[in-house]
Structure formats: structure tokens, C-alpha cells
């Protein structure tokens, strides 16, 4: 039963405020991902939770304990670092047992727990190697092993996959997900990669400039982003956003009300190429990028903005072709002048 409670947390370095009042509740066993562009404060927030960074203001609770001034090692957390941070002068076995040794566990107990973790992560054969003798994926696994031997209440991951190549990243992502299903620990995971966030998270926290932009399940963030920033950050390729003004008449012709919205957003994967009769928007293809399964089209609309359109199938239009685009009303996102979402009431639609 380890929940994590963050109340109005702030952090400043001198006059520069990097975390500007974060409120967050993480439930027991939940997998929460902090995501955001670089410099958004996600790593700082994680480090404040870990105790590696001091807290300037607000409160941090782990379980029933306020831990603002509790030292990192005494918070009951374990952390997996981006660079793995394996001690180069110690073997895998010593690396994994190091924390237990510092905490004065008996050698037998250390041995037992290291072996158990090694079995879980298939590290048995590597225990007497040094970190420099391991591949990137193996190092990553040792780093996770070191985190689980201490049997922590909460796992923290700081961009753990960003040093791996693309293939290994997908593989380790699945392993981390499986590990979480098995161990069920509360987990906080920091990444700048929104696909990692979408695939792993129970809930995603989108951060920007030291503030939370939105918290929600991957589905919520994708389907109902609170603002333009989240709308464009989640999803790849990113959402097309243009002033409502530019496409007002086609929208009206198709019967979509725009209310007081000033910006409209449509995801590339929600735009279908259709016959002229069904088409809502119309434009000329300027670039067609072949992606294997289909093509990513850059379509210049009449009203000026360029929309990305995902087109599956082989018969992709060529540059210069005129295409007609359609979409369903539920996929149209509308935002006000400040970029906040204008949620239309579903029953009225």
C-alpha cells in the first residue's frame, strides 16, 4: 500500500523556478509516466521525489510519511538511471548487492536476494562480470536488478531506455511492462518519448515549464487532450492544428459547429482520402513520403496550412495531385484562443 502524494511541490535554483507547484496522487501499484519536452522539469521532479534533489516548497508523502527532509536512501525507493550508473570497479554481483551491503544485510541474505533478482532478469551467467564487459541491454538489466534487490516500495526510472538502440528499446520496454505486472510496485517513469509513455503507463503526466499540463490515461490524453500542447505532444505524427478561420467554411458546409473556438486540430491518422463528393477539405499534395505500410502526405489546403495525412495502402496520391479529405466529427478537436480544449457536450453532437 504505497501511494505517493505530491502537494504544491516547487523547486528553484536561485531565482529560476523549475518546478512551479505540482499536485499529484499516485495510487498503490500504479505505473505513472512523466513525459514532456526536454527542460520541462520531469527529471527534476523525479529527482525531488527520489531525494537526490532538495525540495524548495510544498510537501511530498510516500505512504503515510512526509519525506521532504528524509534522505534518499531512507525513502524506500529504488532508481534506475539513464546511464545505468553501474559502479565500474565492481562486478555485477557486487553492484547488485551494494545497497544491501551498505544497509548491513547479512551476506547470506544478500546472496539469496541477488540470486533471486538475477534469476528474474536472466542475469545468472553474468554475475561475475564487470559492467564494461556487458552489452547495453545487459547493463540495463543489471541496473533494474540492482533496483529490485532492495525490495523498494516505489520504483523510479529516469529515461532508462534512451541509451539503447531502437530495437532493444522496444524489447526492454516490454520487459519493464512485464516486470511491473509481476511485481506490482508503484512505479514512476520519466521519458521524453511519448510512445514509451503511451505503451507503459496506467496514467501519463504531461509536463511543460515545470507545470502539469494534463494527467490521464493514455487513451484520455489521446482522445481528449486538455489543450493544444498535449494534443500535439501525444500522437505521432503530431496533430495538425490550424486557425478555425482558415477552414471555417468547409467545416460549416459539413455541418460542424465551431462555437467560440479559434483553433482546430485533426490527427493525421484520422484524415481519410475520399471522393470529391464526400470530401470536407481539399488540397494539393506537395510531398509524399513512403513509409512502407503506406505514405505520409503533406497536403497544402486551400486556406494555406499544410496538413499531414496518413494514407495506408499502395495507391498513394503523387505530389501535385488534388486530394479530398474527410473525417468524423468526434475526431475534430477545438481549442480556444489560449489553447484550452473546448469540450463539446457529447450528447449534443
Amino acid at each position: 500500500m504505497t501511494r505517493l502524494t505530491v502537494r504544491n511541490l516547487t523547486k528553484s535554483f536561485g531565482k529560476i523556478e523549475v518546478i512551479r507547484g505540482i499536485d499529484l496522487d499516485v495510487a498503490d501499484g500504479e505505473f505513472v509516466v512523466f513525459v514532456g519536452p526536454s527542460g520541462c522539469g520531469k527529471s527534476t521532479l523525479l529527482r525531488m521525489i527520489s531525494g537526490l534533489e532538495t525540495i524548495s516548497g510544498g510537501e511530498l508523502w510516500i505512504g503515510d510519511r512526509k519525506v521532504n527532509e528524509v534522505q534518499a536512501a531512507k525513502r524506500g525507493l529504488a532508481m534506475v538511471f539513464q546511464s545505468y550508473a553501474l559502479y565500474p570497479h565492481l562486478t555485477v554481483r557486487q553492484n547488485m548487492g551494494f545497497g544491501l551491503k551498505v544497509r548491513k544485510e547479512s551476506p547470506d541474505e544478500i546472496e539469496r536476494r541477488v540470486n533471486e533478482a538475477a534469476r528474474t532478469l536472466q542475469l545468472d551467467k553474468l554475475l561475475d562480470r564487470y559492467p564494461r564487459e556487458l552489452s547495453g541491454g545487459q547493463r540495463q538489466r543489471v541496473a533494474i536488478g540492482r533496483a529490485i534487490v532492495g525490495d523498494p516500495q516505489v520504483f523510479l526510472f529516469d529515461e532508462p531506455l534512451s541509451n539503447l538502440d531502437a530495437e532493444l528499446r522496444v524489447h526492454m520496454r516490454a520487459e519493464i511492462a512485464a516486470l511491473h505486472r509481476r511485481l506490482g510496485n508503484t512505479t514512476i517513469y520519466v521519458t521524453h518519448d511519448q510512445i514509451e509513455a503511451m505503451t507503459l503507463a496506467d496514467r501519463i503526466v504531461v509536463l511543460r515549464d515545470g507545470r502539469i499540463e494534463q494527467v490521464g490515461s493514455p487513451k484520455e490524453l489521446y482522445a481528449r487532450p486538455d489543450n493544444v500542447f498535449v494534443a500535439q505532444f501525444i500522437g505521432s505524427p503530431k496533430m495538425n492544428v490550424c486557425p478555425v478561420e482558415a477552414i471555417r467554411s468547409p467545416l460549416q458546409r459539413a455541418g460542424f459547429s465551431t462555437g467560440g473556438a479559434t483553433q482546430a486540430g485533426l490527427r493525421p491518422e484520422h484524415l481519410r482520402i475520399v471522393d470529391e463528393a464526400e470530401g470536407i477539405l481539399c488540397g494539393r499534395v506537395s510531398i509524399s513520403e513512403y513509409t512502407g505500410g503506406g505514405a505520409l502526405l503533406h497536403v497544402e489546403l486551400e486556406g494555406a496550412p499544410v496538413f499531414l495525412v496518413e494514407n495506408s495502402g499502395d495507391d498513394a496520391p503523387q505530389p501535385g495531385d488534388i486530394v479530398h479529405l474527410a473525417f468524423s466529427g468526434s475526431d475534430l478537436h477545438l481549442f480556444d484562443a489560449e489553447g484550452r480544449a473546448c469540450h463539446r457536450e457529447p450528447e449534443l453532437a
Partner: peptide, 18 residues
């Protein structure tokens, strides 16, 4: 020196002197 190694040490419960 890579700072994360020392962070790992802190998480492992080492004192500054450690």
C-alpha cells in the same frame, strides 16, 4: 566524473564520506 554514479550511491544508502 559521471554524476549518476554518485546518485546511485546515495540511493544505495552511502553517506557523503562513503
Amino acid at each position: 566524473l559521471p554524476k549518476e554514479l554518485e546518485d546511485a550511491g546515495k540511493m544505495d544508502g552511502l553517506s557523503r564520506v562513503g
